[in-house]
Amino acid sequence: MMERLADCSGAIEAAGALLIETLRQGGKILLCGNGGSAADCQHIAAELVVRYEKNRKALAAIALTTDSSILTAHSNDIGFDTVYSRQIEAIANEKDCLIAISTSGTSKNILNAVDAARLKGMAVIGLTGCEGGELSRQVTHSVIVPSDVTARIQEAHILIGHWWCGAIEGAY
């Protein structure tokens, strides 16, 4: 898999540069995903807010996957398809960047989050696998892991997240 990710290195680095620029301009990094991708969102946000490899100032990152009251109230009262787009509507602005993670690139709630981010004027990074799905066609930067195996895609996603965290920390 590592050799196959080399083919994605340009897209990974371009997305990383966008994340650095977002933070430098006072924006936040928002993340959304489902299941294992939700866990990756939390992991990456924690690396940015707390630390990755070195002590440095806290960086603005929010996993939209973590507030159980918002997630359950919205899913129960409105529906799961807009659980992330509603949060983007509430807290995001044009300086922010969304990292949207979907192994298939077809998750409806992730696509709705991308639409909401674009309406806010935000940059969006799509992190996906398989053929990229609709997600890869709707974002500012798309990183498509060259695999159809969900476990391999998820392993690559966290490696890419660490790649970005390292680049961001290098800029601070």
Rank of each mutant, 00 (worst) to 15 (best):
Met2Ala: 12
Glu3Ala: 12
Arg4Trp: 02
Ala6Asp: 12
Asp7Thr: 15
Ile12Pro: 02
Glu13Ala: 11
Glu13Asp: 13
Glu13Leu: 14
Glu13Trp: 07
Ala14Ser: 13
Ala15Cys: 06
Gly16Thr: 02
Ala17Asp: 14
Leu19Glu: 03
Gln25Phe: 10
Leu30His: 07
Cys32Trp: 05
Asp40Met: 11
Asp40Leu: 13
Asp40Gly: 15
Asp40Val: 11
Cys41Pro: 04
His43Ile: 00
Val50Cys: 14
Lys54Tyr: 07
Asn55Asp: 12
Asn55Phe: 06
Lys57Ile: 08
Ala60Glu: 02
Ala61Gly: 01
Ala63Asn: 06
Ala63Thr: 04
Thr65Ala: 03
Ser68Ala: 14
Ser69Pro: 01
Leu71His: 07
Thr72His: 06
Thr72Pro: 02
Thr72Val: 05
Ser75Pro: 08
Ile78Phe: 14
Gly79Ser: 09
Gly79Arg: 09
Tyr84Trp: 14
Tyr84Leu: 10
Gln87Arg: 12
Glu89Asp: 15
Ala90Cys: 12
Asn93Thr: 09
Glu94Val: 11
Lys95Asp: 05
Asp96Arg: 06
Cys97Asp: 04
Leu98Trp: 10
Leu98Ser: 11
Ile101Glu: 00
Gly105His: 02
Lys108Asp: 09
Asn109Lys: 10
Asn109Met: 11
Ile110Met: 07
Asn112Phe: 10
Ala116Thr: 09
Ala117Trp: 07
Lys120Ala: 13
Met122Phe: 14
Val124Gln: 00
Val124Ser: 01
Ile125Glu: 00
Gly126Lys: 01
Gly129Ile: 01
Cys130Phe: 07
Glu131Asp: 15
Gly132Tyr: 02
Leu135Asn: 00
Ser136Ala: 15
Arg137Gln: 13
Val139Thr: 12
Thr140Phe: 08
Ser142Leu: 07
Ser142His: 05
Ile144Lys: 06
Asp148Trp: 13
Val149Gln: 05
Ala151Phe: 06
Ile153Leu: 04
Ala156His: 00
His157Arg: 07
His157Thr: 04
His157Ala: 02
Cys165Ile: 07
Glu169Gly: 10
Gly170Thr: 05
